[in-house]
Structures are given as C-alpha cells and as structure tokens.
Design a protein around this nucleic acid. Structure first.
Lengths: 340, 340
DNA sequence: ATTTAGCACTCACTCAATTCGAGTGCTAAC
DNA sequence: GTTAGCACTCGAATTGAGTGAGTGCTAAAT
C-alpha cells in the first residue's frame, strides 16, 4: 500500500491545495518543515500517488492537484480532528443563548453561523413535520367572511391559513365545529390528518347541518396542504468568493440546483445519521461536480430528524467543517431536547 | 430644446441599448426602419445630444450609450406604455387564483413572478404591521414547561413564539392571565402593545398572585420583539445574467446591500405612492450606481402600505417593467381588499 | 536499494507589438 | 440643412517571444 512518506506527502499536498487552490509542486513541498526529503524523492512519490489515482495534474508539466479519490482517502484516513477555536465556540454558544425558544429562529441563525464561520454555503433541512402530532386547532374569526385557522403540533410547530367562512354560518357554529375537530384530531400525526378528515370526521359531520358541511370543506382545504419541510440556506453568496467559481456559468448552474427546494431536500434527507461527506461526483447533480457536500443530522424530540449541511468546493477545509457540523448538530439536538 | 429628430434618435438609441447592452453607432442607426437619415446627420444629432448630456461615449471613438440624464429623460418623456402580453397577464392571474388566502404566499408568489417575467431581481416589502391591531391572543400549552403564544392581528397576520412557563403555574392560571390580556389588549395597535403592557397591564397584574407576575414577564418577552416587516426577494440570481455584472466584485457588493434587510426596507419605504423610478446615482448606495430601482406601492386594508420593487441594471426595460408593476400592485391591492 | 543531483523538456502565463474594424469628427459638396 | 468622404481613434482580438514553475529520467551517491 502506501508508505508513510507517501501518506505524509499526500496529506501535505491536500492541506496545501485546500489552502491555496494552486497546484502543488515538488520544490515547494521540499521546503516545508514537515518534509525533509529532496524534491526529486518527492517527485517519485508524487508520480506513484498519481498512478494510484490520488493525485492529478492540470497539464503535463504542472504541479499536482488532489483527485476525488485523493480527497476521499484524505477524508477517510488522514483527517485530523480539529479543535474549534474559541471564537467559533463563542459564536455558537451565543446564538443558542437566545431566550426566544423558536425553532425557526434557531435554525435560521445556525445557517447564518455556519456560512459565516466557513465561508461556504449552509443548507439546513427543517425537521420532518409529518410525524408530529396535532396539539390543537384554533380558529380566529377576522370578520364575517374570513377566519384564520391555526394548527399547533406537539413540537411547537405552528401553521396558519386564512379561509373563507360561509356567510350563513355564525361564530357559535364555527366554534362547535372546531371543538368537534379538536376532540377527534388531537394527537393525530399530521400525515394521517387527511385520511382522518376524509373518513371519520366526514362521517361525523354528515349528521350535522348543511352549514357545517359547507364550512368543513373550506377548513379542510385550509388545513391539508403544505406541511412542507422547509429549507434554510445561508451564505449563498459565499460561493462567489471561491476561486473555482470565477466562471459565472458554473455559479449559475449551481444556484439553479440549490434553488430547487424539493431536490435539495431529498438530497439532504438521504444521508444517514452522523456526519457524511459527499465529494464531487458522489453528488447526484452535474452542477455539483466540483463541490463537496457535508451533512450531519440532528434530532428534535423523539424521532424528528433534520439535516444540516455545508456546500463548498471539493477543496474544502474538511477538518474544520466536520468538527463544526459535529458541534452544531449536537448543540441543536441538545437545545431542542431541553425545550420539549 | 430638442428637435423631433433628436427625440427620435435618443429614443431609438436607448431602446437599442436596452436590448443589446452595446454602444450604438450612427451607421447601425441609419439602417433602422424608423430612421431615414444618413449616418452623418445622425452623428451630428448624436453630438448635440451628447453635448446636452443625454448620451455618453465609452471611449473617444465608440458608439453612444445613454447617460443617467438620458434615461431620466427617456423615462419621463419617451416612455410608451406597453400592453402586457397575454402570457404575462395569464401568469399573473393564475398566481392570484390561489384559493389559499394567505398574505405571505401571495407576496412570495408575486416576487417570483416579477423576477421570472423580467429577469431582474424583485424585492417586496411586506405591509407595515405596526398599525395593525391585535385581534386575539392565544396560548397553547405544549407541556408543563413550555407553551406557545400566538398573536393574531385584524389583517390576519399571525405571529407565534414559544416561551417557558414557570413550573409553579398551572394551566387554569395561565388561561386567566390570557383572558385578562385579551380583554385589555384587543384592538390595540401593535406599536402600542409595549406601552400598554408596561403601564396598564402591569398595574392590573400587580393585584394578582406572584405566579401571574412571573408568567407575565415571560409572556411579555415572547410578545414584544420582532414585529418586523418582512422583505421578500425573488430572482436574486438574475443579476448574474446581466452583462453589466460580469464583474464578480460588483455582484458581491450589490448582494451585500440587498441582504441588509433594514436598509433595503428603508429604501423601499421611502417611495411615494404610485410607480417611481430611481436611476443610477439617484439611489443612495454606491453599489447601485449602475442599477435602477423601480418601486410601486400597494395597500392592504385601510392604510397598510407595502412596496413592490424591481432592481436591475440602469439599462432596464422600463416600459415593460413599469406596466408590470402597475398591474401587479393593483392586482395585489384588489386581492387584499377583496379578502378583508 | 534508496535517495539525490542534474538536465532536458513542457506548458501556462505575461506582455508587447500588430492588425482589424466599428466608430467618430470634420470638411466640402449637394 | 443634409450627405458623402476621409483621416483618425481606440478597444478587442491575435500573435509570438520570453519566463518560470513544474515534470521525468538518468546517473551518481549513500
């Protein structure tokens, strides 16, 4: 396999390239403190490493650049876990000190922090709401034509939607309807809401007046759709600062992908627990060829899982990013656990 | 002042430049159908127009480019109102056909439509919530430590925030507190909420138990902050497609401005009623030197005013954009009027 | 058997020189 | 007042020499 020296050289090359984005040559390597050998020796090892597929040349007489296989090896075997700096730890702590216990706020902030600390683009997938259970349904009438339906889940998630109230229906009738719904639907997971509404409740309502029936159909429309899991993106413009994206066309195609919420959500969902690195072509999208995506999962309550991720060039500061995601996902999990 | 021919030439030059982003020369103008004169004649008029400050050269032997003064004149005097295409009208109609009467959704969609139809960046300022009055306050307990406060305004705006419940407080006490607050605060404009809470309510609460007092302070924190007016931005990446932004540095500085929500909000707020065009240096920010910002206001309910805007290069399709904003702001106003 | 020094070779990059063409201003004729 | 003609200007694109960082290979040194 690889000799110790080759390992060292591979490591230093990748570290250097991550820092400078420039191909690394044997001479500059031989000057490094960690390396005591001459440039010729290094050249030989570099040639071997290239043969094995860990390095590449940009052209026949250029320095070496890590290949995807090189990065993969680096991430799997050479990554030295990095202690986060104090500044970073403090920044994170502060964000979570916010007394306002609002999920959205924390997530949004986390996205901001991640992108700020890394200069990459952060993507956070909110927790899946499907498994959350209905806690309470509330109706607030605005005037005689419209009202707002508010739906609160056991995890504190709130959704609301305005809807029309049939003119012939007065407030007390509306209240009765809501009471019925609350009785029957409390504790029902949101995914099952539709089913329940269609069967049980519809049955139940049939016994009542026409108005009930009518109002119910309005309410139903208001309640059913759009329990989407949200995607929070931070530092989208950081992409512009990476030298590998000086070509506007690449930026554009990458943005095009990022903005497809559904596809991005699926991409993030697919990760297992723990930190997970996807390098270059390991990503399903062409536009992410020279990107790496690092994901980590967090949990909210029992089994609600969400994902935080960082998107940057393959030439990413893997050690820092991995540490950061670890800390942050843990922090999020802990914070949410403390709340509920 | 300007001769008819000069007016024509100015108009055609600007139209052409808006289309191609290339300096316009006398020869290419002379070939246009609308223009019957020779290139030499045109050159003379162009020289005059340049002397008057309506045109500029990029270098001594280049074609002409409109100056800001030129655009200003064009917008003020030469703008031929454009009928929107059927496709455009249909796109708009469809967006407003959504049965879900939710303000946010409509605004978000409008932002999307605007940027999609124009390839510029759309910015929409949500209506100021300060003048809206509290309709109802609701508390939904999650467990014995936390609850959610939900605040509904008379325009159907909903805000919510989780907060801690003091352990020694049981649900009935909480309900009592909420009832008191609802009685006293219903109809109070959000801006006055803080004041009211500090004076009247605090007074009222003092009579009650310690627990009330304690819980109240939690609730207060939950209710007070963050009645921000939101900024909705669409098509931020469209900026990348404009040739005047092939320089990444410009893109970055422009993004930096756009992302400062407060400053953008102030900028949009400053416009009077109706459509309003700000060209180049008429904008307060350096990064918007070669941008134009076109704003239009819409109203929600009585006096709630919001703003929709488009940001693009000074070389903007003014006629189309102005028509579009007109239609859309009217559509928004109408839709909201119908709701409330 | 490694490691190193030396040398010829490769290739991107920079920079100046050159050309090309779209454009202008000016003048004289129409 | 309008137009044709001409000299001139200047940016953009093209070319070619020079530079330097890099390589691979071979032979000597360890």
């Amino acid at each position: 396999m690889l000799t110790d020296r080759q390992l060292l050289i591979l490591q230093v090359i990748i570290d250097e390239f991550i820092l400078t984005a420039q191909p690394v040559g044997s001479r500059s390597l031989s000057k490094k403190e960690e390396i005591t050998h001459s440039s010729a020796t290094i050249r030989n090892d570099m040639a071997d490493l290239e043969e094995m597929g860990f390095l590449e040349k940009t052209h026949s007489s250029s320095g070496r650049v890590p290949s995807e296989k090189g990065y993969r090896f680096y991430v799997d075997h050479l990554l030295s876990p990095l202690r986060l700096s104090n500044r970073e730890l403090i920044t994170i702590k502060q964000a979570f000190n916010d007394r306002r216990m609002e999920f959205e706020r924390i997530v949004q902030k986390s996205a901001g922090i991640l992108s700020e600390l890394t200069n990459y683009t952060s993507i956070i997938l909110g927790p899946e709401v499907f498994e959350t259970k209905l806690k309470q349904l509330q109706i607030v009438p605005l005037n005689d034509q419209s009202a707002i339906a508010i739906l609160v889940t056991d995890t504190g998630h709130v959704e609301h939607r305005a809807f029309n109230v049939p003119v012939e229906m007065d407030q007390s009738q509306l209240e009765k309807l809501v009471n019925i719904l609350n009785d029957r639907l409390r504790g029902v997971p949101l995914v099952q809401l539709y089913e329940k509404l269609q069967t049980e409740i519809l049955e139940l309502i049939k016994g009542h007046t026409d108005q009930h029936n009518h109002a119910f159909s309005y309410l139903q429309a208001a309640l059913l759709d759009d329990h989407e899991t949200k995607l929070y993106i931070g530092g989208k413009t950081n992409i512009l600062m990476q030298p590998e994206f000086k070509d506007l066309e690449k930026v554009r195609s990458l943005y095009a992908i990022i903005e497809k919420e559904n596809e991005m959500a699926d991409l993030l969902r697919s990760g297992e627990k723990g930190v997970h690195v996807r390098i270059g072509h390991e990503n399903p999208f062409d536009a992410m060829q020279n990107c790496s995506l690092i994901t980590a999962s967090y949990t909210l309550g029992n089994e609600q899982v969400g994902t935080i991720a960082l998107l940057g060039p393959t030439r990413m500061e893997y050690n820092r990013v991995v540490s950061l995601l670890n800390v942050l996902s843990k922090q999020m999990t802990d914070t949410f656990r403390a709340w509920y």
